[in-house]
Computed example of a mutant assay.
Amino acid sequence: MITFLIRAAIFVVSAAIGLIAADLILEGFHIDWSNWWGFVLAVLIFAVIQSVLAPWVFTITRRHAPAMLGGIGIISTFVAILIVVLIPQAGLSISQPVAWLLAPVIVWVVTALATWLLPPLFIKKQVQERRAA
């Protein structure tokens, strides 16, 4: 159970890092920093939608367009960003067409790297705590 919670926290943190990276890199991608609760809402909604969409998009893609299986992460990231942008309280907006194209790629790459690099930090700490106990 603890491992599940750690993995969920890592996914939420990686989603936040990905959205922040897109905000810093892309001119047309905006996070409303004046409303921190909106950003937290955006991150949580994005993380939940992304975790639900990825398996669903995989199933649909495998069945109807197997050549696109490699792009599942980017497709589900795009859909998750689209849904979050449509929620007014989420504090996320995209104002340029280029940002619509590049934001999913940036968020996907950064999220993938974060979910790959963060677990050893937390799992190593958990292993050390168990050994000490």
Results as ranks from 00 to 15, higher is better:
I10D: 07
E129F: 10
L69A: 10
L53S: 06
A47H: 06
V105W: 07
A42F: 02
H64W: 10
I10M: 09
L41G: 04
A16F: 09
W56F: 12
A65T: 07
A65G: 01
A65Y: 09
R130S: 15
E129V: 09
F122W: 12
V85I: 04
P55Q: 05
L92K: 03
T77P: 00
I83H: 01
I45H: 04
V110F: 09
V40Y: 07
A65S: 09
A65I: 03
A132P: 06
F11L: 08
R62N: 02
F78L: 05
S14G: 02
I75A: 03
R130I: 10
G38C: 11
L101T: 08
L102T: 01
L102M: 12
W116V: 11
W116L: 15
L86S: 07
I106G: 02
L44D: 03
Q96N: 10
V105E: 11
E27Y: 13
I6T: 15
M68P: 02
I10G: 14
K125R: 11
A103P: 04
S51P: 10
L118V: 14
V12I: 15
W100L: 00
I10R: 14
R62Q: 04
I20Y: 11
P88G: 03
F39Q: 13
P120N: 09
H30M: 11
I123S: 13
V57K: 09
L44N: 02
W56C: 08
T61V: 05
R7V: 03
I60N: 01
R130K: 13
L92W: 02
A112P: 01
F122Q: 09
A99W: 00
A65C: 03
V107L: 08
I45C: 01
A47S: 12
P66L: 07
Q89Y: 10
N35P: 07
M1N: 13
P119E: 11
E27K: 12
I123Q: 15
I94D: 00
V127Y: 05
V85T: 04
G70N: 04
K124M: 06
Q50V: 05
V79K: 02
T59V: 12
L69H: 10
L113Y: 06
I83F: 03
G28R: 10
V52C: 13
I6A: 10
V48P: 10
L53H: 10
W56D: 07
S93D: 04
T59E: 15
R7P: 12
L92P: 03
G70A: 04
A15D: 00
I17N: 07
L5K: 05
Q96W: 02
I74S: 03
A21R: 06
G18C: 11
V57E: 07
F58Q: 13
P120Q: 14
A47F: 05
F78M: 01
G91R: 05
M68I: 11
I25Q: 07
P104E: 02
L102A: 12
V57G: 08
H64F: 15
F58C: 10
T3H: 09
I17T: 09
